[in-house]
């Protein structure tokens, strides 16, 4: 429980950094670090398979996409960047305050949850769950990936061209 609390606090702090940092590249790296921490939490909770997916896909693949987007879009000139940074600081300064306030409120009220937990699942193997019980989800995943393929084909094409 101690380790878990530390990991959760770190998760909030790192994602805060990812949201607040002025450089886009650092934001992408911060997000990858958030994913990595989430992986550790999942592992702690005993979900190794989901953790592997999170690590390879979110911390890996999505970071690659993000970094390539950042590198394909050009940087602002330094002067413009400093100006934007000023206005950004003004806009984002309230976020930590808001977080602290929300935390304080939640720590003081502490809603009286009386969780009535259901009976534990008969199937404890995630592979059986995914391949036998929830096979339709796999079909849905395949369709989502197909949509993604079309997305790459259409959206990452160069400028509009006439004819085929």
């Amino acid at each position: 429980m101690m380790l878990l609390s530390v990991l959760l606090i770190l998760l909030v702090l790192i994602s805060l950094w990812a949201v607040m940092t002025p450089l886009l590249l650092r934001a992408a790296i911060g997000l990858a670090a958030t994913s990595a921490l989430l992986t550790m939490i999942m592992y702690q909770l005993g979900a190794p398979l989901a953790a592997v997916f999170e690590l390879s896909v979110c911390a890996g693949l999505i970071s690659v996409v993000f970094v390539s987007v950042v590198s394909l879009t050009h940087r602002l000139p330094l002067k413009e960047f400093m100006k934007r940074r000023q206005s950004r600081i003004k806009r984002f300064i309230f976020l930590p305050l808001l977080l602290v306030a929300a935390l304080a409120i939640m720590l003081t009220i502490k809603l009286p949850f009386q969780l009535q937990l259901p009976a534990a699942d008969k199937i404890s193997d995630v592979r059986v769950m995914l391949w036998n019980i929830r096979r339709i989800d796999l079909f849905g995943q395949i369709m989502a990936l197909l949509a993604g393929v079309y997305g790459v084909l259409i959206l990452f094409r160069g400028r509009k061209t006439d004819g085929d």
Binding site: R134, I136, G140, Y150, G151, I154
Partner: peptide, 23 residues
Amino acid sequence: DIFTLYIFIEVTALATFILIMLN
């Protein structure tokens, strides 16, 4: 199943984002 419902809603939505951007 309520989660499968979500998946199919999302598949429809994903195809639609790309359709809007079609030309």
